[in-house]
Amino acid sequence: MLDKNLSQKIAFWTFRFLGLFVIGILLWILGFVVYNGIGVISFEFLFEAPRNGMVEGGIFPAIIGTFCLIVGSMVVAFPLGVMSAIYTNEYVREGKISKAIRTMTNNLGSIPSIIFGLFGMALFVNTMSWGDSIIAGSFTLGLLTLPLVIRTTEESLKMVPDSLRNGSYALGATKLQTIRRVVLPMAFPNIVTGLILSIGRVSGETAPILFTVAAYFLPKLPTSIFDQVMALPYHLYVISTSGTNLEAARPMAYGTALVLITLVLIINFSASLLRKHFGKKIGV
């Protein structure tokens, strides 16, 4: 039998080592992309189309494409998600129905993104015959991120104290008036935080856009919502696996990875800053 103090020492040093090891790995990945990518970033890289078999030029069309998809998917997911959360949180009494809705939302959230790709292709691209287009991709991504929007909105609605609702009713306001004038304004900053989180999720997804919108190479910018676009994550996948000259395309891949990571980290970071700020402000 080991002395209990000795075994504590051994265990704790193991955990310290593990902690440093894992954090080291995560930092290594981050550092690897930043170190290799930083030299590639230039004005030309950010604002020009790829040239010469995608080994030269920039990634401007992919940046614009990702931007279009972010806006499109939020137009789909935001109103739907917020209304859904209002319904479950404000209209339905806690019980079987609200539990069932929540279970379904969780289940939808756990479905792999490639299934959304299949579904989007079957419904939006083929059945609705929208073809590979921004609108098909936006609907697919929007449905993918819907559970996240609903969950964060519900949390923000829950943070609004019931006393405020009751005060509003006592003044003779109807349910809808209470929601519009009291609950939503109070919850709004946190709802926006959830929205930003969903944007972070959407901008990095590759699998759902493979067959619904993403173009392999398309230097032309989109002119309507029925156009195909390039997108950052798909572009990274393409130039790192299936170009004609993989070695020559490596610098472009590092640059794209860095832009993608920076975008996602900035989005998530601002969401967590906002949450900290407004979480304190409501203070319930």
């Binding site: 990095g204 590759t206 798909y234 990274l236 993608l260």
Partner: peptide
């Protein structure tokens, strides 16, 4: 924050 890094970046790495 690291949980938010897109999977395609992990794949690339």
């Amino acid at each position: 924050l690291l949980a938010g890094i897109p999977s395609v970046v992990y794949g690339f790495f």
